[in-house]
Simulated assay, not measured.
Amino acid sequence: MDPGNHSSVTEFILAGLSEQPELQLRLFLLFLGIYVVTVVGNLGMITLIGLSSHLHTPMYGFLSSLSFIDLCHSTVITPKMLVNFATEKNIIYPECMTKLYLFSIFAIAECHILAAMAYDHYVAICSPLLYNVIVSYHHCFWLTVGVYILGILGSTIHTSFMLRHFLCKTNVINHYFCDLFPLLGLSCSSTYINELLVLVLSAFNILMPALTILASYIFIIASILRIRSTEGRSKAFSTCSSHILAVAVFFGSAAFMYLQPSSVSSMDQGKVSSVFYTTIVPMLNPRSTA
């Protein structure tokens, strides 16, 4: 379609999570509570690790990085989401692309930091005598740097290709934040390349870390089953199960949103799914990994 026949969108309006007026106050209070718990939990974890010298280990270094990513991830999304519940018209232009860029960085980084943590747990449980050699401070530092590099690289690719589009169909984004598929729905030009890019990069950034985590926990569970003490097995399973649950919710909801074509997925279902990896999991992570 020729973009010359259409006027360009000059401002974006977020449709929000729900359009039912009677739910707005309840949802505002619910997500405000979730955000407060997220901020306090993750800031508390970062502060505790920073102030406790005996926690300055690679394992807690990964946990501190995860808390930082969760804090930033939630802060990029939730405050604007709360504005949606409090106002009738939530305008986000011109920071929409900035929000998309930052959200993508932290979402991708979280996928890979969770995989790094799973590998760290695998080494700690399955090869404890070699742990300090395999997961040294040097290796921990470069793994963390690699996580952020992958986040910045993936986000730059997504945002750069999005900026090439002429958005003119409507100025209402059917979502509570600036996400890839809702923005592509506003484009007057072909979105085939972008959708293919989302599927390919999502396969790398979601499936690869998920498979790494799955493989790590298969070996971890096998090692736990060899523990002779019933109490020891129970404690180990309790520790692992909470982390596995948080990881499963994060990757399951992200896969539902991004590992299928936009023509197949329902945006209303996608909004509900995205609540889990943008707000719920960042709140749960400090408790499930501690």
Rank of each mutant, 00 (worst) to 15 (best):
V172Q: 05
I206E: 04
I125H: 09
S136Q: 04
V264I: 12
L180P: 05
L214N: 12
F31N: 03
R228L: 15
V133M: 07
C72H: 10
V200I: 14
K89T: 15
K271G: 04
S229V: 03
C126Y: 07
T75E: 02
Y137F: 14
S8G: 13
Y137A: 09
S262E: 10
T57D: 09
G50P: 13
V135P: 04
N42C: 08
H56T: 10
S8R: 07
A290I: 13
E110C: 09
A246C: 10
A115W: 02
A115D: 02
I220M: 02
L23Q: 13
I125Q: 08
D179I: 09
K89M: 15
L25N: 14
E110N: 10
L25T: 11
L199N: 10
G232V: 08
T170L: 05
T278V: 08
L180Y: 09
F204E: 08
A236H: 05
I108R: 00
S242N: 07
A290V: 14
S74Y: 05
I69G: 03
I280P: 02
Q20I: 15
Y131P: 01
A15M: 11
G154T: 06
I108V: 11
S7R: 01
N194P: 13
V172S: 03
S67E: 07
Y35V: 05
S64P: 06
I193L: 11
M162E: 02
H158D: 14
M257G: 14
L284E: 06
K271M: 08
I152H: 10
I46N: 04
L102A: 07
L207I: 15
N42T: 04
F68C: 00
I227N: 05
G16S: 03
L183T: 08
I13T: 07
S274A: 11
V133R: 03
Y277E: 06
T212Y: 11
S238M: 09
G33F: 04
L25Q: 12
I105E: 03
K169Y: 12
N90K: 03
A15D: 13
V249Y: 11
I125S: 12
L184Y: 15
I244R: 00
N90C: 06
S253N: 06
P209H: 01
E19H: 14
T159D: 03
S7W: 15
D120W: 15
A203R: 00
A86H: 12
Y148I: 01
V133N: 09
K271T: 07
E19K: 00
Y60V: 04
S53C: 13
I218A: 08
L167M: 07
S238L: 10
G185M: 10
P3G: 11
G270F: 03
S136L: 02
I152C: 10
M97S: 09
E231K: 03
I218Q: 08
V145K: 01
C168N: 06
F141Y: 12
